[in-house]
Amino acid sequence: MIKNISNLGDAALYCDFGIEVNKETNAKVIKYFKNIKEKKIKGITNITPSYNKLIISFDLSLTKFKELKKIIENLELKEILNNKGKIIKIPICCDKKFALDINNLEKKLNISEEKIYEKFFSKDYYCYMTGFIAGHPFLGDTDISLRAKRLETPRVRIPKGSVGITEQFCNIYSFESPGGWNIIGNTPLNIFDNTNELKPNLINPGDTVSFEQISIDEYKKYYE
């Protein structure tokens, strides 16, 4: 199922699952990720699944590219129990003070604010991967009418909880961070809990996210 394995530097395997970005390809990536994780293969220090790639980094004092490549190529894949993700409800407030880019998006996409939110809230989103910053989910796919490019100049600070869209994806900034996505709202939920070592992430790859629009008053209640 992996189309090609090459080396990324001297201490990582770059597993390519093809150019397409869709749920099917991503499900294969996640299946490999979970199988490799379970096997606890000597020397592996990190496994990073993304839309259509899997990066396996390793400790060069314990194994080598060729050795590990062989192991991955001959890996017996098991069906993963609990492979069905959870469905997670995420409240978002789209008040003007949170929706930093909504007016720009109206221009970029040439549709009204009402239409943007109607399209955005009308579907559920699949979590392809988490990362970039801790807990940050990459979700998809957005309606075809909502696909805009990133900001030309990324923001230095995006507030924690901001929900952004770009291309076919949306995301949630788990804490304040730089970033270039078009921000349309903010969730009061804590997406990454650094005090919970077992389950730090609210959303994990394979999960489905269902966004729910809330008012500013409802938003404030989360902090009471």
């Binding site: 990720f33 994780k37 220090t45 990190n46 496994i47 990073t48 699944p49 990066i55 980094s57 991967m129 988490t130 990362g131 970039f132 910053i133 801790a134 807990g135 940050h136 788990s174 990454f192 730090p200 992430n201 994990n204 790859p205």
Partner: peptide
């Protein structure tokens, strides 16, 4: 810190 890239926690 190992084995946490997949949740976005760097080394």
């Amino acid at each position: 810190r190992k084995n946490l890239y997949h949740i976005g926690v760097p080394f």
